Amino acid sequence: MSEETEGVRLQKVLAAAGVASRRASEILIEEGRVEVNGQVVTEQGRRVNPDRDQIRVDGSRIPPPRRHQYLVLNKPRGVVSTMDDPEGRPTLSEYLPRTAQRLFHVGRLDTDTEGIIILTNDGEFAHRLAHPSYEVPKTYFVQAAGVMDNHAVKRLAKGVRLDDGPVKPDKVKLISRGKDATLLEITIHSGRNRVVRRMMDTVGHPVDRLGRTGIGPVRLGNLPVGEVRDLTREELGALLDLVGL
C-alpha cells in the first residue's frame, strides 16, 4: 500500500510544516501536545491525511500543505481593489511579485483606504473569508475630523443606524484627541460598503484618513506600504479555523 493511500506519519507532517524537527515532533507527540481531529495522539507512527485531517499542536491549527498562495498586501491609498482597471488607475496587480500565481483579492478596500488586503487563488477560502455569515472581524485605524467628545465615542460604540440598517462595531477604542482630529481603532465584522466612513459621518466626525490594520488574527504589523508577504503558518491555521475549513 502506498504512503498516499495509507497516510503519512504524523511526525513527518509536523516536520514538513516547520513545527519542529522530526525527532522534536516525536517528543511533542509523547508529551500529549498533538491532536488529530480533536483527539490527543500519543503513539508514534500514527498515520494521517494532512489534506483532510485537522492537526493541532498546543491547540494551534497546523494548516495542510499549501496547494495555493495566500498573500498579505499593505495597499496604498489611491490604489483600486482590482487586478486591472480600464481607466488606467493603479491596481493591486502592480504590487505583487512576478512569481505570484493568478490571484484574486478577498473583499475590497475603498480606493482612498489603505491597509491590509488578502490575495489568494484558493476559491473556497476566499469565499468563506469574505462571506458575512462567518463574521470575520476587521480592524481599522481611523483619523476623524474634529474632537470627539465622550458622548460621540459612546454613541459610536453602541451602534448607529445607517440608511441600510443598524450597525454596531465589535469594539471602539479611543487612541487620542488632537486639536482638530480624533484617532480611533474600530473593529467591526460588517462587510457593508464604506461602513466605517458612513458610521463616522452619522456621529458627525467624517473620516480624514482610514486604514485597515487587521483581518481576523492577521495584523499588518510593520509591513511597509506597497509591500507584500505570505501568510504565516499560524495566521493561515487560525483563519482556516475561523471560516470552518
Results as ranks from 00 to 15, higher is better:
residue 36 V to T: 02
residue 162 L to I: 03
residue 101 Q to D: 13
residue 61 R to G: 01
residue 133 S to E: 08
residue 66 R to D: 01
residue 166 P to Q: 04
residue 46 R to F: 08
residue 144 A to Q: 11
residue 170 D to L: 15
residue 23 R to A: 05
residue 207 V to Q: 10
residue 21 S to P: 06
residue 131 H to I: 01
residue 185 E to K: 14
residue 22 R to K: 06
residue 176 S to A: 15
residue 84 D to V: 08
residue 147 V to A: 13
residue 102 R to P: 02
residue 152 A to D: 14
residue 166 P to C: 00
residue 184 L to I: 08
residue 166 P to N: 04
residue 236 L to C: 07
residue 78 G to H: 09
residue 149 D to T: 10
residue 186 I to R: 05
residue 215 I to H: 09
residue 133 S to V: 07
residue 49 N to S: 13
residue 187 T to R: 14
residue 198 R to K: 14
residue 31 E to A: 13
residue 223 L to N: 04
residue 34 V to E: 05
residue 118 I to R: 06
residue 179 K to G: 15
residue 146 G to A: 12
residue 2 S to F: 09
residue 147 V to E: 14
residue 205 H to Y: 11
residue 136 V to T: 12
residue 208 D to T: 05
residue 156 L to G: 06
residue 132 P to I: 02
residue 244 G to T: 04
residue 141 F to W: 14
residue 158 K to W: 02
residue 22 R to T: 03
residue 153 V to M: 11
residue 150 N to H: 07
residue 210 L to D: 04
residue 159 G to W: 10
residue 185 E to S: 13
residue 66 R to Q: 14
residue 107 G to D: 09
residue 214 G to Q: 13
residue 206 P to F: 04
residue 206 P to G: 10
residue 81 S to E: 09
residue 172 V to R: 03
residue 131 H to L: 03
residue 190 S to L: 01
residue 221 G to Y: 06
residue 75 K to V: 13
residue 74 N to W: 03
residue 98 R to S: 14
residue 126 A to H: 10
residue 156 L to W: 09
residue 214 G to S: 15
residue 34 V to L: 07
residue 154 K to H: 14
residue 186 I to F: 10
residue 222 N to L: 06
residue 143 Q to W: 13
residue 207 V to H: 12
residue 148 M to G: 11
residue 160 V to F: 04
residue 135 E to S: 13
residue 43 E to G: 12
residue 113 T to C: 11
residue 211 G to W: 02
residue 97 P to T: 10
residue 140 Y to C: 10
residue 240 L to S: 08
residue 216 G to E: 07
residue 184 L to A: 03
residue 28 L to H: 01
residue 125 F to W: 12
residue 165 G to P: 04
residue 140 Y to G: 07
residue 29 I to K: 09
residue 52 R to N: 14
residue 32 G to V: 04
residue 35 E to P: 03
residue 37 N to C: 00
residue 145 A to G: 09
residue 109 L to K: 07
residue 8 V to S: 04
residue 223 L to G: 08
